[in-house]
């Protein structure tokens, strides 16, 4: 494991000057992951904040080869690049001693929803690549619409806090487990506040052969209605409340990487975010209780699986 000093000595592959918002969770994730990836890495990004914010022509934040082709196909696009690498290396058109890493990145919309099929295809075919989902819990680039990752009760522009329907009425998908069910060699959840854990997981994902997956929570001050300076703290609180547990499934074996000494009530995380403001009205309080129950149940299930084989 690298120290912070060692990490900071590695060249920056994701430059500043991009147009992502202040307090956005994506840049710290990308900067760390690309440091870990090494100098020979190719990336693709699904349509979304990261793509739009980093490449307005003729500028680019990417000091590595990078491509955007569409919203729902980051995984499929990268599978083509990885396949090209395999054949061109065999044919001697890529230096034999060069070990190139492949990274596909999507937001939760591009991963849980519209890009889900392409992702599933890549996981099943077992391309040697890493897929990272930055999960900010909605389609943020297009103005905060609900996604399959949006938390129950959350207000978005397509699940507004109405008097009849107070925010999103459905539970979120458990994508990390769905990905693991493809029997991939490595799937994990991480958070940018715990850089050691994220660094370790990214390192593993790049080292392990096959399709590896990281689901990383990514605070969004714009969509969460939070203070930009609180983003890392907000990510931490998601983990401390066990809303976003840090765990990994390596070769079928599930391991919970962090167990808070004292599990904080979900309310603490909710109350800092404007997207949950309506839940604190008397008539909606029951939603908070339901959310708490769900978090408790999920956390218990996860603990019961700690150290167990899923496949």
């Amino acid at each position: 494991m690298a120290t912070l000093k060692e990490l900071s000595n590695i060249e920056e592959r994701f430059t500043g000057g991009h147009r992502l918002c202040a307090g956005c969770g994506i840049p710290p994730i990308m900067r760390l992951v690309l440091r870990v990836a090494g100098p020979h890495v190719v990336a693709t990004t699904a349509t979304g904040c990261l793509e739009v914010g980093t490449t307005i022509y003729p500028y680019t934040s990417w000091r590595i080869p990078w491509i955007h082709s569409a919203f729902e196909n980051a995984a499929a696009t990268m599978s083509g690049i990885e396949s090209a690498y395999n054949v061109l290396k065999r044919k001697g058109r890529v230096p034999q001693d060069r070990d190139i890493k492949f990274l596909a990145i999507g937001g939760d919309g591009g991963t849980y929803d519209i890009g889900f099929q392409a992702l599933s295809g890549v996981l099943e075919r077992g391309h040697n690549m890493v897929y990272i989902c930055y999960d900010n819990g909605a389609y943020m680039n297009t103005g905060i619409q609900r996604s399959g990752a949006t938390p129950f009760g959350s207000a978005t522009t397509t699940s507004p806090a109405g008097s009849v329907h107070p925010g999103k009425q459905q539970r979120r998908k458990d994508l990390t487990r769905i990905v693991a069910a493809h029997r991939v060699p490595y799937a994990a959840q991480a958070s940018p506040h715990n850089w050691r854990d994220l660094e370790k997981k990214a390192r593993k994902a790049f080292q392990i052969k096959g399709a590896c997956f990281l689901n990383v929570i990514s605070p969004c001050p714009l969509g969460w209605y939070t203070k930009p300076e609180d983003s890392i703290e907000d990510a931490k609180l998601a983990v401390e409340t066990c809303y976003w547990p840090l765990y990994e499934i390596e070769d079928g074996l599930l391991k919970v990487n962090y167990k808070p000494k004292e599990k904080r009530p979900i309310e603490e995380w909710l109350k800092k975010q404007g997207r949950f403001k309506h839940l604190f009205r008397e008539e909606n309080r029951h939603i908070i209780e339901e959310l708490q129950k769900e978090v408790d149940r999920d956390w218990e299930t996860l603990l019961s699986l700690d150290g167990k084989r899923l496949f």
Binding site: A70, T77, G80, I81, E82, S83, A84, Y85, L88
Partner: peptide
Amino acid sequence: SACIGAAAAGA
């Protein structure tokens, strides 16, 4: 999509 990725990789 895979064709696009592969072609952009020079294949």
